[in-house]
Structure formats: structure tokens, C-alpha cells
């Protein structure tokens, strides 16, 4: 019983997967619902990725859709044009899909490195301008590249992503973010966010840690891009405009910048919310906007700002952890109990 209590996530996560599969099998989840859940997963990965840069390291990236575009196009190029995956049997098909995803992530990370290297030495707004410019440049390049469909868009990408793969990558993303924040890398990044000069005087190589965070984030964005491409089956450069980047920023700040749980909820809830509001027809986006306004007015730190789900078991950041009990109405926060080992580390 005690093991179960301490490792509830190891039981809960597979159960959620099985439940989703059963719901799909018995037709409760139709294709429409399925697509929304898949897009929500993609958006969660993107928001987590953005959180590493904007939330944890305190740098402003406002062109994250650019990295997503790189991942999406590179992986689609791989599965659709270089290898025509759709005619293959299941196992090599899946293997190539995963390979394409990883390659998409790596190429996005390379772009992240190239962009980050010269600009992360600059402070604040400069990085924001450069990332915004990068997103638009990528879009312009894709628009004139004939073999990925140029301005017509890329069609007929095999539908290889499914709920299982997307949420597996969501879990991996959560895991990577959690471990990143709980490592000395994450603490160094948070130190940079809180006070760059003090971080410098403690011997933290500021630009190195910024680049590590930025490249990790770009990799995750590339993976999300690949998932997106193989969910939607159609890519167009205009999908990855700055409006898309802004969406992720909204998810992150409404969810709670700097918090893994906040990024998760922001990405999930705000993807689903506009769909739930569909019954309002043309009033849908008005209500959506008003709800965002209410969140920012009454909880400027975001829904989960400064808090984390207790099942993430984060230790760093002076964080208040929220258990299921707290979510279900008990107001009192469980304050993180620092163990004696913490002193000896």
C-alpha cells in the first residue's frame, strides 16, 4: 500500500492509457474527439518546451513555432518523400516514424543552437526579436522550397501519430522537464532567471546554461512538430506563423509560467476550451478571450504559477506541491517537507 502511495504515477499513467484505448475501442471517443486530444498533446509538448526557455531560464522566445515548423517539415520529408512509409508494414513504418521524429527534433535543436549561440549573450528583448524573426524566416524559406510543396503546402503525409505515441512523448517531455529542473542545470537556469549578475558571481557560465535550455527546448519543439505533421497529414507554412507562437505563449502564461503542471494544464485546457465553447457559435472566441482575461486579472501568475502537482515530485524551486486532495477542495497547501538528506545531497 505504501509503495502504491509513493508510486501512484507509475500505476496511474498506464491506467489512463488503457482507459483511453478502451474508450476508443468502444467508440466513446470519436474521430473528432480523438483529433482534439492529439492536438492537445502536441500543444502540451510545445508549452512544456517553451516553459524551459521562458519559464525556467527567464529568456523570451516568441518564435517557437519556427522550431516546430522545422521538426514538422523535416520529419514529414523523411516519412513522406525520402522513404515512402505509407506502403510499408507496421513495424518498419513505426520505426521510421520514430526515427523521423528524433531527426526532426535534432535538426530543430541544431537551429536552436545556431540561433541561441549569438543571441543568448544579449539580454531580454533582443532575443525576443531574433526568435520572432527566426520564426518568420523559416516560414519564408519553406514557402519558396519546391520539394516540400512551397506555398501550396505539403500534402499526403502518412497518419502515423496516434494517441499512444503522442501521449508517450508528452510523458517523456514531462519527465525530461522534471529532471531538468531538479538537476543542477535547472537550478542554474533558475538562478540566471532570478539574477543574472549573482549567477555570474557564483561561477555559473550564464551563456552555456542558456544555450542548454534553449537547445533542449528546440528539440522538444521539433518532436512536437513531427507529431503535429503526422496528426494533421497536411502542412502549410502559414500554420507556423507568429500567431501560432503567440498561442503557445498564451497557454504558458495562462497555465502558469515556470511551472511544469501549469504548462501541462495550459496546453491541455486551452486547446480543448475553444472546442467546448463551439455551441456558442460566433461568440466562441469572444468568450475564450474573456476567459483568458479573467484568468490574467484574477491570477496574474497563471492557474498554476508557483505550484506543481505532487505526483511530479519536484524538489527544486521552493515549490508548493499540490496533491489530489488540494485540487478536490482542501485549501491548505502541503508545504514541501525538506528531508534531512537534502542537506547532505
Amino acid at each position: 500500500m505504501k509503495w502504491l502511495k509513493n508510486n501512484s504515477e507509475k500505476v496511474a499513467i498506464p491506467l489512463v492509457f488503457v482507459a483511453l484505448w478502451l474508450l476508443k475501442y468502444f467508440g466513446v471517443i470519436n474521430n473528432y474527439l480523438l483529433q482534439i486530444l492529439m492536438l492537445a498533446g502536441v500543444n502540451i509538448i510545445m508549452t512544456e518546451s517553451l516553459n524551459l526557455v521562458n519559464g525556467v531560464t527567464g529568456q523570451n522566445s516568441i518564435g517557437h513555432a519556427g522550431f516546430m515548423a522545422v521538426g514538422a517539415y523535416i520529419s514529414a520529408l523523411f516519412t513522406d518523400i525520402i522513404f515512402n512509409v505509407s506502403d510499408m508494414p507496421l513495424i518498419p513504418q513505426t520505426a521510421l516514424f520514430l526515427l523521423a521524429t528524433i531527426i526532426g527534433g535534432i535538426i530543430a535543436a541544431v537551429f536552436g543552437y545556431l540561433i541561441g549561440m549569438p543571441t543568448l549573450r544579449l539580454r531580454g528583448d533582443y532575443l525576443a526579436i531574433v526568435t520572432l524573426g527566426f520564426g518568420e524566416v523559416i516560414r519564408a524559406i519553406i514557402r519558396i522550397t519546391p520539394f516540400v510543396g512551397a506555398a501550396r503546402g505539403m500534402m499526403g503525409i502518412p497518419k502515423l501519430a496516434n494517441l499512444f505515441w503522442i501521449y508517450l512523448f508528452v510523458i517523456l517531455a514531462l519527465y525530461v522537464c522534471r529532471n531538468f529542473i531538479d538537476s543542477s542545470y535547472g537550478r542554474a537556469c533558475m538562478a540566471i532567471r532570478d539574477n543574472e549578475i549573482a549567477a555570474n558571481t557564483l561561477g555559473i557560465n550564464v551563456s552555456r546554461y542558456k544555450i542548454i535550455a534553449f537547445v533542449t527546448s528546440a528539440f522538444m519543439a521539433g518532436v512536437a512538430g513531427s507529431m503535429f505533421a503526422h496528426t494533421m497529414r497536411y502542412l502549410h507554412p502559414d500554420i507556423f506563423s507568429y500567431i501560432k507562437s503567440t498561442d503557445f505563449l498564451v497557454y504558458l502564461y495562462a497555465g502558469g509560467v515556470g511551472s511544469i503542471s501549469g504548462a501541462f494544464l495550459g496546453g491541455f485546457v486551452l486547446t480543448i476550451l475553444p472546442e467546448i465553447l463551439r455551441f456558442m457559435q460566433e461568440w466562441r472566441l469572444v468568450i475564450y478571450g474573456a476567459l483568458l482575461l479573467i484568468i490574467i486579472l484574477f491570477r496574474p501568475q497563471g492557474l498554476f504559477g508557483g505550484k506543481e502537482f505532487s505526483w511530479l515530485k519536484l524538489k527544486t524551486g521552493g515549490i508548493h506541491q499540490m496533491g489530489l486532495k488540494d485540487l478536490l477542495g482542501r485549501k491548505k497547501m502541503i508545504k514541501k517537507e525538506a528531508s534531512a538528506e537534502e542537506t547532505s545531497q
Partner: peptide, 11 residues
Amino acid sequence: RRIFTNLTVME
């Protein structure tokens, strides 16, 4: 001082 305000004393 320039303390990292989002971290605990130990961190």
C-alpha cells in the same frame, strides 16, 4: 545581495 528569490535558502 542579489539573492535568487524563487529558490529556497538551501537551493
